[in-house]
Design a protein around this nucleic acid. Sequence first.
DNA 1: TTGTATGCGTTATCAT
DNA 2: ATGATAACGCATACAA
Lengths: 332, 332
Amino acid sequence: MNKRKNVARMKDVAIEAGVSLGTVSKVINGKPVGEEYEKKVNDAIKKLDYHVNSYAQGLKASRTYTVAVILPNTIHPFFGRLANCLNVSLMQRHYRMLLCCTDQNYQLEQEYMDMALQNKVDGIIGLTYNPDLIISDDIPYVTIDRPLGAHIPCVASDNFAGGQLAAEKLHELGCKKLLFMRIGSDLNNEPNKRRAGFENGCIAHGLDYEMKILSDTAGESIDDFIPYLEKHFGKDKADFDGIFCVNDLLACIVVEQLKKLGVKVPEDVQVIGFDGTRNFGYLDYTCSTIVQPVEDIAEMCVELLLQTNMSMKPPLVCLPVKYEEGDTTRPL
Amino acid sequence: MNKRKNVARMKDVAIEAGVSLGTVSKVINGKPVGEEYEKKVNDAIKKLDYHVNSYAQGLKASRTYTVAVILPNTIHPFFGRLANCLNVSLMQRHYRMLLCCTDQNYQLEQEYMDMALQNKVDGIIGLTYNPDLIISDDIPYVTIDRPLGAHIPCVASDNFAGGQLAAEKLHELGCKKLLFMRIGSDLNNEPNKRRAGFENGCIAHGLDYEMKILSDTAGESIDDFIPYLEKHFGKDKADFDGIFCVNDLLACIVVEQLKKLGVKVPEDVQVIGFDGTRNFGYLDYTCSTIVQPVEDIAEMCVELLLQTNMSMKPPLVCLPVKYEEGDTTRPL
DNA sequence: TTGTATGCGTTATCAT
DNA sequence: ATGATAACGCATACAA
């Protein structure tokens, strides 16, 4: 009957109900309408299985109730959970979510930005790595973890406080010689705050500490930690009694490696990670860790993005982290 | 200058370039146009930072290049990876992906279906649980893991073969008395195929076996396995020497539990899981497992969904699984 | 309170 | 080859 497929349009509903187009529109948008008419329209809608075309709606209103979410992936537990929480927060506000996985590919990140622009989404939430990412001023943007300028709100865990907390906890747990381990992108500056906070905590408590930092930008891999660990740890030797790893994954790998070297965790060495992966999904890694408040991060992003009546948006929002005990530290 | 914001429209480009609307449209859609004109238009597009409005495009063409993906969540490693793979497969075909996490909530599943309809997406890929889910005939639909009728293509791992393979592997590994363990929804029938395949394999090889199946629909939880395990396993006792768990998560939990009971894995009892979670993400669970081909599943879903020139679409596509050795079985 | 007409930004059809 | 115009489906301002 219609152009393609037999999909009902508003016009068909109007005809079926014996009313005019405007009346149907009003019923759909919850505007006051005669009770009699309302029923007729609703019956027609049901009968024809009518659904408003949100593309036509979006065109008319310049409002699409869609937000693009740009993430590296949904495989890593942190990102998977983040995607899920963002979806929930958006859904609660009746917003749709366009997911864009970039695999940390700079070019893909830019392509997705442009796609979002074309799609006239109402906003973008991005966790990106491209240092030269071009962000249009025409569209609300909130970044996660990576500040992109004072005019773009950035939401992150309080990484500095997290690093500090890790140092304090290891101190409380009786550690004397601490080690910080990290591998990651040089550009990625949030983990640097974890390091800075950790250093700060060590200094505050007069603790000895050392840093072992690898750069994957420079081509180093996680395996390059092995000789370092072999040098400092062995059957009856441990140059450090407390380790803070920049994330839970690294913590798990380090624990495995230490066990292979005959070092007991947590008896000889205590390890704290960062992320809270242990709480993600259904698996229990029981790694002591600094937990990132993923739900709060998601909620804050959406809140800031959709808030229109703010003359000035906060450039950086740091959400509180907390320590959660696992099997890689001794009971306090 | 314009209605809201200073976003350039095609008309603005036409004026800036000093050509007509139709010419601009042609340039954008790669239709033949005079070289001179093409340059002028492209310059104007760049100058005005113009992006086509895909909502207007979608309205005109009844084609949105958008697919809705309905999943329980993106937290579970299997789903997180599935979402990611679908995103990649869709992206390669220049399709956008609308993500919908349902948390297995029947009503949410239905709401998302309706949302997809409103949004006039070009298709839906769903992994749903609602047995009464109403699926519109007006829109291509592909289901994962759960057959919804002969006219709706279903893509799944070859679960029967997987169960069979598990039995065979345990047989090859020298096991004599096997156990199948499962917890899950009663409605969920794919894991039942794993059970059936497993039984089949046991029978074929003349193996003793037992089933322990819990139903979370009936309110049973994973903890209810504990008394069962305590009854059958102990310091110097093991009623079974090979266990096939319906998924890797359960396998991990069972292994933990057995270790607590003083049973050695894989020396006393060998365990095989299902999913391939060990390959998901960056963590290595080293659980011997039947691996689901997630990338292939995603690719097949997208292929079937977008394939228009097929007079008949296959009602059920089973993709091959494979065995991958981990630390919960002895080397072959 | 209900109906009518116009425009949102794009594409496709038609003249030119 | 290029330019003008109608139509996509909906919302809204305005007229009845």
